[in-house]
Design a binder for these strands. Sequence first.
DNA 1: ACACCTGTTGCACTAAGCGATACAGAAATG
DNA 2: CATTTCTGTATCGCTTAGTGCAACAGGTGT
Lengths: 279, 279
Amino acid sequence: MAENAASRRRRTKDAEVDDLGGCAADDQFVVRALCRGLRVLALFNVDHPEWSLNELARTTKLHKATTYRMTRTMEAEGFLVFDPDTGNYHLGPALIPLSYLAQTQAELERLAKPFLEKLARESGETANLAIEVEGTFIMIASVLTAHTFKPSLPIGRVLTDLNNAHAKLAVAMKPPAERAQFLSRQPVAETKYSLVDRKQIEAELDRVAQEGVAYDMEEHGLGVCSVAAPVFGPNGTLIATISVVGPKERFGPDERKRATEHVKRIAVELSEYLGYRPV
Amino acid sequence: MAENAASRRRRTKDAEVDDLGGCAADDQFVVRALCRGLRVLALFNVDHPEWSLNELARTTKLHKATTYRMTRTMEAEGFLVFDPDTGNYHLGPALIPLSYLAQTQAELERLAKPFLEKLARESGETANLAIEVEGTFIMIASVLTAHTFKPSLPIGRVLTDLNNAHAKLAVAMKPPAERAQFLSRQPVAETKYSLVDRKQIEAELDRVAQEGVAYDMEEHGLGVCSVAAPVFGPNGTLIATISVVGPKERFGPDERKRATEHVKRIAVELSEYLGYRPV
DNA sequence: ACACCTGTTGCACTAAGCGATACAGAAATG
DNA sequence: CATTTCTGTATCGCTTAGTGCAACAGGTGT
């Protein structure tokens, strides 16, 4: 099944809008009309959920008549809905099923995979991705490397305490009320390095929130260290955390600094790939 | 702003796929290429999250070469991603921002509004829509009618107990564990008709779950009755509940039966509009 | 009354998208 | 191991289908 398709270009991110009618993104194998229509559609987001015809035409630099046909087509297909009261277009029902799929764990994992691979490759350590679901943190993807010392955290592993970089990071970024809720749980001392003092933990979370990076220095398991950075969604909410895990032997000050830079950079790249636009 | 656009067709649901290449859904103002592309895109959903080129071509009855160009275009625009390992296409990152928007309260409200209006018109009573958020039920849309007796439940009103049709319905459809969690809350007797006996409540919920309709016979407020029916999303999960509210004078056996039929029918229509496909 | 917004059409030109056909590599067939 | 049959990819004329222009219609504001 892989066939010669395996030789397919795995696009990085070149894609920069070329103003004039041309849509020849990278191949000549693009159908212009579809391309233009999709560009119109892609303008809709939480920050700008409704558009008038002229707005669309103006910002896409397409002819008004052309844009009109696009919107009518998308309307006919249920991708857009025209609101006669306001004269604006909104997303239509056809996008609901797609949105349910897009927000699936599996889809996030798929989209994130290449970035995890890159992270693992560049850092030389295991890369992980975790999401929060109802107050717990679940490892949903992991990419190992050549010198993986041990399988660290298995996929599907549920993290309920704060002895790991993923949970620390996510909890640190929450509003005070929710953070307090987490802190009300009894801390578990998994290793002798685990933080148990409430004050100490709070200080650590403050540091994490400020720096935007969380560390796990053998707090979850002896000899195991990690760094985690946040992945944001289109509306700026935290949708996942990614980390690099390694043995303490390869987590000295210098290596730790390098790992931190790697994780942070990839987290930003992934966030942007997923539609996050920093303010 | 409303202008002549106000005279725009408010489509009902005619849209039936016309097999042959033609995409002339209802106007001549459709761009065929875009239309076809969207139809390809719309095939992706939770039940069938990945498609191969030939699958797409086959089920859309488009030429393989055409489909190829479509997928390549959508890939270039980030709407699809080709996985070289499996040889299948998946949804791409461009859909993430859209999906975040599509799952907004505001968008649901927009899409549901016409249905609520229809429900209010046909039943002659006030129509409401509520969603659940973290264990409570919030009224997010309401359409009044000529003989609205009083403003019933205001928009934004939070319902925490089971003395209303929305909460009853939603709780009744939950798995036993979650239902039990709700039942552990102390019941509040808002009126003399409120159910307070645990056994009685359970029996009522069982009935609701079986019939797929919940009633509120003056349990929340004296003289106020209502019927609620469930709205399902693409993956079959409950995403909202809609209801009809009226004074007890207009809620005799016959009227109640008619109202029930109205609510149920509109609930089904809205569910299907939102992508729910009944098994 | 005007100018200036909207969204909506009709029409003629031509490039853009189409389908047939062919090809390469992988996998399943025997 | 040859055969068949999948898969995705590429080429190339034909003609249709999509485009841009320019005009139109109804609303708003001044």
